[in-house]
């Protein structure tokens, strides 16, 4: 019995819903993002690679893996080689906490929401590190911008992710999801829907997507912090960006959209666990795609901000707003939800 459980756990970590599933699903989400973004701009987007271009992100990754891998003179060798691996490993590790095929992630313990948020903060630091060790003037400028943006978005992101935890009175993702199954998705609750908006905007900044792609603004500073990375290292960074997008979409799903549970009906408790896992993952896919489509729409609707405009937006509006709803939440929740 114990051996079987161990094998199942290993399968869950490696295959589904672990590393392999997350990698392919993240690449699929990149395709969804690119295609929808292109359609909004009246383009066709990826088209010839696989049906409707669905294999495009995979082709990109394979091509980059097969390219020459240059380590320029003057870089810090260990840091330059290590940074992409760190980024990828941390992204995969944090995805273990996201509830995909059941109400809890593969790893789940008390207070795991804080761990996930902490790891997502480390991503920002890795980007700063990667730009700093590559010792090129464009990377340094990009790094400085990444650092500035990092201090802007991190606080509202954290606070907006804590608000669902306040309403559900738990810092564990599993219990937040179960609270939503027992009651209703948190996006329908008054202060949490504002928090959802803040979370999405800050996720765009974290992913360096369009209105906030200041650190890699290709029209100004070549490719920002990623300028010197080529071949395999660039492939790992691209993959880790996709995984980060999946992580943030998954977190938004778990925190605000009721996790992987279906909307409108609850699964009976005595359902076959494999069937339940299937239904849960289908709903997870639907909800994460919805979140990604919201992000792509915002991407297409806004042009890039200057760094001072972005910082002013974060510090003047989003941070005070998020702190205000942080104070408001317990009052509202005390009267209506607890």
């Amino acid at each position: 019995m114990e051996v079987l459980e161990l094998i199942l756990l290993i399968l869950a970590t490696v295959l589904f819903p672990g590393v392999v599933f997350c990698t392919y699903y993240a690449l699929f989400l990149e395709w969804v993002d690119r295609k929808f973004f292109a359609r909004l701009q009246n383009r066709v987007g990826p088209w010839i690679t696989g049906p409707k271009g669905i294999l495009q992100p995979i082709a990109d990754i394979i091509k980059l893996l097969a390219k020459e891998d240059i380590t320029p003179n003057g870089v810090d060798r260990a840091g330059f080689v290590g940074a992409p691996f760190f980024a990828l490993t941390l992204a995969l590790f944090s995805l273990m906490f996201v509830p995909i095929a059941s109400t809890s992630g593969i790893l789940s313990f008390k207070g795991d929401l804080l761990i996930v948020l902490f790891i997502s903060t480390v991503f920002g630091i890795i980007i700063i590190f990667a730009g700093y060790v590559s010792a090129s003037r464009f990377s340094i400028v990009g790094t400085a911008r990444a650092g500035l943006q990092f201090v802007g978005y991190e606080i509202p992101l954290f606070v907006s992710a804590i608000i669902p935890a306040l309403i559900a009175r738990s810092l564990t993702l599993k219990e937040i999801v179960e609270w939503q199954i027992a009651h209703y998705p948190l996006i329908l609750c008054f202060p949490a829907m504002i928090a959802f908006g803040i979370f999405i905007v800050c996720s765009l900044a974290k992913l360096e997507k369009l209105p906030f792609d200041i650190p890699e603004a290709e029209t100004e500073i070549v490719a920002g912090w990623a300028t010197e990375f080529s071949g395999k290292k660039l492939a790992l960074f691209r993959l880790s960006t996709d995984l980060k997008m999946l992580l943030l979409a998954g977190l938004a799903t778990a925190l605000f959209l009721g996790g992987p549970a279906p909307w409108g009906f609850t699964l009976p408790a005595d359902l076959n666990p494999y069937l339940a896992a299937l239904i849960y993952s289908i709903w997870f896919v639907i909800k994460t795609i919805i979140v990604v489509l919201i992000m792509s729409t915002l991407k297409a609707a806004f042009a890039r901000y200057r760094i001072d405009q972005a910082l002013r937006g974060f510090w003047r509006y989003l941070t005070p707003l998020s702190l205000a709803i942080l104070i408001l939440t317990p009052i509202v929740a005390y009267h209506f939800y607890w």
């Binding site: 383009r43 066709v44 987007g45 990826p46 010839i48 271009g53 082709a59 290709e218 010197e228 660039l234």
Partner: peptide
């Protein structure tokens, strides 16, 4: 030309 997977990149390394 993104339909062929062609993207415009800023850095020669990419």
């Amino acid at each position: 030309v993104e339909r062929f997977g062609i993207l415009l990149k800023g850095s020669p390394r990419h």
